Amino acid sequence: MTEDTQDTPLLQEARFWQDEQWTAKVIKNEDDDGWAVAMYKAGESEPALVGPWTMGRDKKNPKPLDGTAFITLVKTASEFVRRSEQQLHAQLNQSVTVNSQDGRVTVLLRIVPDEDNPYALLTAQDEVGETLAEFKVEAGFKLNRQTAQAWVDADLVKPGSGRR
């Protein structure tokens, strides 16, 4: 533990648990008479994950949070966030390898999700990772084996322009 985290009080209450990275809040489920638990990553205003929470013995109030439950919730929320980040990365970064006259060429498409002007960078690299060509293209550019091969076969001219 670092000095900074030793000064930070960690709350451990029946409906609220917190460590340096995560906060668990047991909340009333808006959809029914039950309870839910919301997991917040430190510094985020929106929950990373919300799931059902168990009723207590009185069948009215939620079961209190405890250390074991908190650890399980942190693992679940962390895995959910990790998978979401991997999915977003995969959506924004694509690659296809095709053959050219000079060997294998990897064509990469990296989408830059700018709110006002999204675009993508289309890059061709040789087998050792040297950039052969790179162009800014529309964010909706479709990269697949056929479009990559067509670009390589056209000597890597800027798509839609007819020139390098």
Results as ranks from 00 to 15, higher is better:
residue 74 V to E: 06
residue 75 K to E: 14
residue 75 K to G: 11
residue 75 K to N: 12
residue 76 T to E: 11
residue 77 A to D: 05
residue 78 S to Q: 14
residue 79 E to A: 10
residue 79 E to C: 10
residue 79 E to V: 09
residue 79 E to H: 15
residue 79 E to F: 10
residue 80 F to P: 08
residue 80 F to G: 11
residue 80 F to T: 14
residue 81 V to D: 11
residue 81 V to Y: 00
residue 82 R to V: 01
residue 82 R to E: 12
residue 84 S to K: 15
residue 86 Q to S: 15
residue 87 Q to D: 15
residue 87 Q to N: 15
residue 88 L to M: 13
residue 89 H to D: 15
residue 89 H to K: 15
residue 89 H to I: 10
residue 90 A to I: 05
residue 91 Q to K: 11
residue 91 Q to S: 13
residue 91 Q to I: 08
residue 91 Q to R: 10
residue 91 Q to N: 14
residue 92 L to H: 06
residue 92 L to I: 02
residue 93 N to V: 01
residue 93 N to K: 07
residue 93 N to P: 05
residue 93 N to C: 06
residue 94 Q to R: 10
residue 94 Q to L: 09
residue 94 Q to H: 09
residue 95 S to P: 03
residue 96 V to G: 06
residue 96 V to R: 03
residue 96 V to P: 05
residue 96 V to D: 01
residue 97 T to P: 03
residue 98 V to G: 01
residue 98 V to P: 01
residue 98 V to T: 07
residue 98 V to L: 03
residue 99 N to R: 14
residue 99 N to Y: 06
residue 99 N to T: 10
residue 100 S to K: 07
residue 101 Q to E: 14
residue 102 D to H: 13
residue 102 D to A: 15
residue 103 G to D: 03
residue 103 G to C: 05
residue 103 G to M: 08
residue 104 R to W: 10
residue 104 R to H: 12
residue 105 V to Q: 04
residue 105 V to M: 03
residue 105 V to W: 02
residue 105 V to S: 07
residue 105 V to Y: 00
residue 106 T to G: 03
residue 106 T to A: 04
residue 107 V to E: 00
residue 107 V to N: 04
residue 107 V to C: 02
residue 108 L to Q: 11
residue 108 L to E: 08
residue 108 L to D: 07
residue 109 L to W: 02
residue 109 L to S: 04
residue 109 L to F: 04
residue 110 R to Y: 09
residue 111 I to E: 02
residue 111 I to H: 08
residue 112 V to Y: 09
residue 114 D to M: 13
residue 114 D to Y: 08
residue 114 D to T: 15
residue 115 E to D: 14
residue 115 E to F: 15
residue 115 E to S: 13
residue 115 E to C: 13
residue 117 N to C: 12
residue 117 N to Y: 13
residue 118 P to T: 13
residue 118 P to A: 11
residue 119 Y to R: 12
residue 119 Y to M: 05
residue 120 A to W: 01
residue 121 L to G: 09
residue 121 L to C: 07
residue 122 L to K: 00
residue 125 Q to Y: 04
residue 126 D to W: 05
residue 126 D to V: 06
residue 128 V to L: 11
residue 129 G to V: 03
residue 130 E to R: 14
residue 130 E to Y: 08
residue 131 T to D: 04
residue 131 T to N: 03
residue 132 L to R: 09
residue 133 A to P: 00
residue 133 A to E: 00
residue 133 A to K: 04
residue 134 E to W: 01
residue 135 F to G: 06
residue 135 F to Y: 14
residue 135 F to H: 07
residue 136 K to Q: 10
residue 137 V to L: 01
residue 137 V to N: 06
residue 138 E to D: 12
residue 138 E to T: 09
residue 139 A to R: 06
residue 140 G to P: 06
residue 140 G to N: 09
residue 141 F to A: 04
residue 142 K to Q: 13
residue 142 K to I: 10
residue 142 K to F: 05
residue 143 L to A: 04
residue 143 L to N: 03
residue 143 L to Q: 01
residue 143 L to C: 03
residue 144 N to V: 07
residue 146 Q to I: 11
residue 146 Q to T: 14
residue 146 Q to R: 08
residue 148 A to C: 02
residue 148 A to H: 01
residue 149 Q to C: 00
residue 149 Q to E: 02
residue 149 Q to G: 05
residue 150 A to L: 05
residue 150 A to P: 06
residue 150 A to G: 10
